[in-house]
Each structure stands twice: as structure tokens, then as C-alpha cells.
């Protein structure tokens, strides 16, 4: 189908999503529910991946720095930069696009094919606002905390693996993760996270909301949600990187 059709329909849906909430107390309750379902339930997978990836980055960096001209604190520095700039904000968000995105698309898609969305509309409820706004708000609120945790655990995983394997000393690693730190890079990372949170939830909701047919189509919507969220994450990652690293 024409991509302009999807873009137009996406923005029309977003217009409905961000129209005035009908009852704030109900929306607030939904946001809390979504924070739990989108955010808290993703903690274990994020923790496991971050710790292991931190360890892997540290070992690979230590293995690569064979020249005596490169100080070993560069291991900590490389680990920090990799995790803060790309691994936690982008790769973890790609993982969340798979986990959260498919979940949202299939949940809303199933509601569509079982007429639950029609039921909301007939009650006089703005179904797009009621179903999608809390998911977007919850993700935008909770993703930065998840990614901050991922950063912390990634760096800690690198420390644990680097020191225990003898790749570098504790002092070298700790010195490395503090060396040449530029705080604006955190703004860059968290800006990416907020944009990615919006992309994952809104694109997945879009595909779920416009599901028609049966169980097969719910599966297709779920796949489309993950594929297009991932592509948009990479695209917007590139755009934001160009903006922040522009000289």
C-alpha cells in the first residue's frame, strides 16, 4: 500500500490519541497499569542483556588494545562510550521494539478483531485515546529509567568481567569510565530514548489498531509493528546523531 497512505493515517490516529482525555482519573489508572506492563515486566530481560553485553564489550576492547601506546584505562572508556551512546539507548530499544512492540500490536489487534474497540466507540469513548495514549505516556515516562538501569548494569557488567578476567585492573577500569566524560552525551542518549519510546508504542499501536481480519492478520500486524519500529528507530537514531554531533 502507498506509504503516504500509512503516514497520513498514522498522523490522523495520533491526532485522535492526543485529543482531550475524556476522564483523567481513568487515563491515569491506565498509565500506571501500562508502566507496569510495558516497563516493569521488561526489567529482567534488560538486566540480563545489559550485564552480559557490558562484559562482552569490555573483553573485546581489552583484547583489541594490544599496542603499548594505548593505556588500559581505554577499556573502561570504550565500554562506557559504547554503552552510553549506542548499546543502551539504541540496541536495548530495538530489543524493546520486539518485546513491547509485538505485545502492543497483538493486544490492540486482538481487541480490534473481537470488536472490543467497536464496543468502546459505541459507548462514546475515544478508543484511540483510551487505548494508545496511556501506552505512549507510560513508555515515554518509564523507558528513560529502564535505559538508565541498562547503562548502570552494562558498565557494572563490564567492571565485573574486566576485573575478574584480568583484562584490566579495578583502578584502570574505574579511571577509564570517568575519563573525558562529556555530560551532553547523556542528553543525546536520553533524547534518543524518549523518541524511540514514542516510535515503538505509537507505530505498534497504529498497526494493531488498523488490524482487520482474524488471527493471521494479528500476527502480521505484530510483525509489521516490530519491523517498522526497528527501521524507524535506526532512521531517527541517525538523524539525532547527525543533529547532536554536528560540527
Amino acid at each position: 500500500m502507498n506509504p503516504f497512505f500509512h503516514i497520513g493515517r498514522y498522523f490522523m490516529l495520533m491526532f485522535r490519541v492526543f485529543s482531550k482525555p475524556q476522564k483523567l482519573s481513568v487515563y491515569w489508572r491506565q498509565i500506571l497499569h501500562e508502566i507496569n506492563s510495558i516497563g516493569i515486566s521488561s526489567l529482567p530481560i534488560i538486566a540480563i542483556i545489559s550485564i552480559f553485553m557490558g562484559g562482552i564489550i569490555t573483553i573485546q576492547a581489552a583484547f583489541g588494545f594490544t599496542s603499548p601506546l594505548v593505556p588500559l584505562y581505554a577499556v573502561g572508556f570504550t565500554t562506557r562510550e559504547s554503552i552510553l551512546l549506542e548499546f543502551s539507548p539504541t540496541i536495548v530499544c530495538l530489543i524493546l521494539a520486539g518485546k513491547v512492540g509485538s505485545n502492543i500490536a497483538s493486544e490492540i489487534g486482538a481487541m480490534r478483531i473481537t470488536e472490543q474497540i467497536d464496543a468502546l466507540e459505541i459507548m462514546g469513548i475515544n478508543s484511540a485515546g483510551y487505548l494508545i495514549f496511556p501506552k505512549i505516556a507510560a513508555a515515554v515516562l518509564i523507558f528513560p529509567f529502564l535505559i538508565a538501569l541498562s547503562m548502570f548494569l552494562g558498565i557494572w557488567g563490564g567492571y565485573a568481567m574486566g576485573v575478574s578476567s584480568g583484562a584490566c585492573t579495578e583502578y584502570q577500569y574505574v579511571f577509564g569510565i570517568q575519563a573525558f566524560f562529556q555530560p551532553w552525551k547523556l542528553y543525546y542518549s536520553f533524547t534518543k530514548v524518549i523518541v524511540f519510546a514514542f516510535i515503538i508504542t505509537s507505530v505498534s499501536s497504529y498497526y494493531g489498531y488498523h488490524t482487520s481480519g482474524g488471527a493471521l492478520e494479528v500476527g502480521k500486524s505484530s510483525t509489521s509493528a516490530v519491523v517498522y519500529s526497528s527501521i524507524l528507530i535506526l532512521l531517527f537514531g541517525l538523524i539525532l546523531t547527525n543533529l547532536f554531533f554536528h560540527r
Binding site: A110, M111, T114, E115, Q116, D118, A119, I122
Partner: peptide
């Protein structure tokens, strides 16, 4: 409205 399948919220 009473839908054919009920349309209760799962």
C-alpha cells in the same frame, strides 16, 4: 450494544 461475540474486555 450487545455484540455477537460479547466483546467483553479480556
Amino acid at each position: 450494544m450487545l455484540f455477537q461475540g460479547g466483546a467483553l474486555f479480556d
